[in-house]
Design a protein around this nucleic acid. Structure first.
Lengths: 229, 229
DNA sequence: GCAAAAGTGTTTTCATTACACCCATGT
DNA sequence: ACATGGGTGTAATGAAAACACTTTTGC
């Protein structure tokens, strides 16, 4: 098997830090490895890049295998290639992160994983390989980008409340935000659509439901609007 | 030669966008290729990453071979791995940029290059492979980072005038800055050292010479200072 | 009627912008 | 004396921050 030989000398993989948001917590989809090395340990989902795949396709495939979903926000972050990062040989990995709506997903057990679970970002420790470093590098990048691009919405259901959006920002940025100022800023951007719909089944005044309006955003951009939180 | 076989199936390289600054222009060090593919065309300096090198080392080696210098600011930017980006097989390249002081450098002819030259960033067109895209991806990253970190100094001689610094920012950001406001902002950061030295040999009032003071910067950071231009 | 989160405006504070003239040197 | 870039301060503007109470619903 020539591929095996080659693999253990030098190979490329992609690893995908799949972010989701639930309740008030940012989560990452991790797998428990079924095979050596690092059998039984938690790790990022990833795969060897096949010769006929582009890098982004590799990252999308990882996601699709695990969750069945496609068309998500995906961003390449960094490549990790320390000589000794993989105990079986030289493997350079290209790290991506994806943003998905947890509610859209039914996790599929994957062949290479004993378990697949959403883990709270703050509870993550001790991952296989250099995956801990990868997760935190991606988190740092997410923190930067969420302030500069309207990508937070990718983590929320189609329709969401402003409080949910605020909690999302707070959990990613790890800082509290002022409710009034946050709402003022977001609403003044004029990139949300209000559906004349309210939350139901909550034991308090129901909140208005909004969705991100891509058309409005594109229009605003043409008029010189620059997203920034 | 097993390496050759493997190389032409799948390999990884580093490419280094080496930025320099001279006069009022941002420059990039390019080579004219001596060998196929793309013989005679301008390209980025790069190299195959040897199995025993970390990625950063690969990028530093490229720089060292070409200029003899070490200890420069280096940053990984993005990996490019489109299936067809290299006509001879699958080659994934990891792009870096470096910031160097042109005055420190005596360009060495490299074995793989017919010529090596500093090219004005605005004059660059039609590079080999996907190197044009790589240059512009790195430039975009530099534009972002130069606002958020005190790295502009890496492109200037040890001692520089405030006008030189301003011109540097203007050429990278491609926008004019107000002289008084720029100086006020930079000086108020308190991260420069004034040497009680002036420019000499200029046909106008000589400017004060400053250098970036790393100690002051570290101290300021500890007091919560965040660099931003 | 009580608990729980939604919703809402104004003032203060601070950073950014705009702007024009005198100064020191070489030729 | 003139050309060239160096050096400087203040007022106006606008964005961000601080801050507390009323509203609507379910139980």
């Amino acid at each position: 098997m020539p591929f095996q030989n080659e693999f253990y000398k030098s190979a490329f993989s992609v690893d995908n830090v799949i972010f989701g948001f639930e309740g008030e917590n940012l989560k990452v989809l991790l797998i428990k490895r079924k095979e050596e090395p690092y059998r039984g340990e938690w790790a990022l989902p990833g795969d060897i890049v096949q010769p006929e795949w582009n890098l982004d396709e590799g990252a999308r495939n990882v996601l699709k295998q695990l969750t069945g979903i496609e068309n998500v926000y995906l961003e390449q972050v960094h490549s990790f290639g320390d000589v000794n990062r993989h105990p079986r040989g030289r493997v350079i990995t290209i790290a991506y992160y994806s943003l998905i709506k947890i509610s859209d997903v039914d996790i599929k057990p994957a062949s290479f994983a004993e378990k697949v679970e959403w883990k709270d970002i703050r509870s993550i420790e001790n991952l296989a390989f250099d995956h801990y470093e990868i997760v935190h590098t991606c988190l740092k990048r997410l923190r930067l980008n969420i302030k500069l691009r309207p990508i937070g919405f990718e983590l929320l259901p189609e329709k969401f409340t402003l409080t949910e959006l605020q909690k999302l920002y707070e959990s990613i940025l790890e800082q509290d935000l002022d409710k009034r100022n946050f709402r003022k800023k977001i609403l003044s951007m004029n990139i949300l659509r209000y559906h004349n719909e309210l939350q139901t089944g909550v034991a308090h005044r129901p909140a208005k439901l909004y969705s991100f309006d891509d058309e409005k955003y594109e229009e605003a951009k043409e008029n010189g609007f620059i997203f920034e939180v």
